[in-house]
Amino acid sequence: MKREITLNINDRDETLVVDDAETLLEVLRDRLKLWSVRESCGVGACGSCTVLLDGRPVSACLLLAVRSTGRDITTLEGLGDGQLLHPIQEAFVSERALQCAYCTPGFVLSVKALLDEIPNPSDDEIREYLSGNLCRCAGYADILRAVHLAREKISRAPVKPE
């Protein structure tokens, strides 16, 4: 069945007609051209389609778009301010925590959720939280360093009103 829904994406309301059978991934990527949201496994296992739903990480490939109304959806595009990179992105750049970068948006958003939930995570907590984000170029050691750097950058940053 088709219906008109309004989704709040990166603090903007988007009204569109979707089929009940469409996943949030299909809507974000194919309709709204938010290219940071990527499909790889399609079964919740890889994290390349990670988005934040009310600040919590989820696999957009497993969610029906019509069930995401009334929630705050954040994709990587909503993380920086359009000009400057977010401290987590900066940390990924300076630690060279990417090669092909296919996995990077999913990792950055998962790190955002992790640091919001556990501001000072141990290595084990980071590994546990990120174990569902796969990186085939296997920059895991660099990613681990990037998380620590991001944590430092965020704790040093002056608190900005959202």
Binding site: A45, G47, R56
Partner: peptide, 9 residues
């Protein structure tokens, strides 16, 4: 279970 995203959902 699985990973944190699956457990959220």
């Amino acid at each position: 279970i699985g990973n944190v995203r699956v457990r959220e959902t």
